[in-house]
Design a protein around this nucleic acid. Structure first.
Lengths: 204, 204
DNA sequence: GTTGACTTATGACATGGTGTCATCTATAAT
DNA sequence: ATTATAGATGACACCATGTCATAAGTCAAC
């Protein structure tokens, strides 16, 4: 998290900094991004940067977290609309993500995130969904899921189901960027995989 | 790939370098690793390093590829033993991986790989070979799978099935390191997820 | 309105990392 | 012996990070 000093800044200055960061992290992935570029773009001296943030990662994950909170809220709202149908929600959400990427800078930012999707990134993106440390958030979601349609026997298995579908969703987003799929191709692949998950991989 | 000059070195000197690299990449993940440490440990001057490799990444992916070739061969051999049963093969292979990690340096190396499992890492691990050979190797595996037990209608779907199970397998290996699971816990989780995949997530 | 305590701003700098290049050395070929 | 070709070497230019001494601002209390 940014240091307190950052939050004492005017909303304006905060936004300028966040914008500068987003610009740099859209240009190149985290490990190639340079603080020099961010401060030049934001027009602040180097020392100030370290008044506000621990380091580059601190700023990056603050930004990534902010963006995924939006996703999380949308996910919950779609889940409610769809009356707890997990699969419908996933698909609608996937389509939303494709739409959001119409903005080029946004798209480049997420390309850099997904093509360097390590554990910490995934955790930040999915934190509000299945990380157990945030019990309340987690229960907010599972309470909404209509489990009567799911082929599970206990809450433990529901947890695994969520891990599986989130994993496959991330994987498809990575493929979207890695293979440079069109929205249609990406959605088609996702639908096939979700369908396979629903009906099972084993012939019965 | 390393430059030709590297392959002109004596097997001994090659091994010394590879060992030094493995040591450094076991200590810290790729982006924190320093060439200075590798050359100090291998006892070669800085200039020589750049005679042999393009850069740090070049060496890292050469090493990672070497290690995953072993995995790949084992996977194929298990698949044959199990008469093409994909799920049995996955589970046996998962157990093998847990065993391999008994060696501490090996384990640390793979911890650093899996906790920073980006697209390029996964691609290197999953295909075990450089670009040119991918297709051949891939068909080698496909041919061995007994598809009569799988709930699929065409080769396209088989392709998706493989993506799904590989994705879930990687995800479980990441969790193993991230959550510091015991071998038993990790295996238990993996078995539950594979079982869910087999029988399908939707109640029928 | 002066003092003092605390917070914030600033940029020069120490440190450490990367990749290059001019130069030296070894080996092979004629 | 001479020349060409490949390999070895470490000093160096360049760039990035994080720190720190110092300056500047804020605010409450007297």
């Amino acid at each position: 998290m940014p240091k307190q000093t950052f939050f004492h800044l005017s909303k304006d200055k905060q936004d300028t900094l966040i914008e500068a960061a987003k610009k740099e992290f859209s240009r190149v992935p985290l490990h190639e991004a340079s603080i020099a570029n961010i401060i030049k773009s934001a027009g602040i001296p180097r020392g100030s940067f370290y008044q506000y943030f621990e380091d580059k990662e601190d700023l990056f994950y603050y930004l990534l977290n902010q963006l995924s909170v939006k996703n999380h809220l949308r996910f919950i709202s779609v889940l409610q609309e769809k009356n707890g149908d997990l699969f419908e929600t996933l698909i609608t959400n996937f389509q939303f993500m494709l739409e959001v990427h119409r903005d080029q800078e946004h798209k480049n930012f997420f390309r850099n995130v997904y093509l360097n999707m390590n554990y910490k990134n995934e955790k930040t993106l999915a934190y509000h969904v299945y990380e157990e440390n945030q019990k309340t958030q987690y229960f907010n979601i599972i309470k909404l899921i209509d489990t009567t349609k799911l082929n599970i026997h206990n809450e433990q298995e529901l947890h695994h189901v969520i891990k599986i579908v989130m994993g496959i969703t991330f994987q498809n987003l990575v493929q979207l960027f890695a293979k440079d799929y069109s929205d249609e191709e990406a959605l088609k692949n996702y639908l096939v995989q979700i369908d396979l998950l629903k009906r099972g991989l084993l012939k019965n």
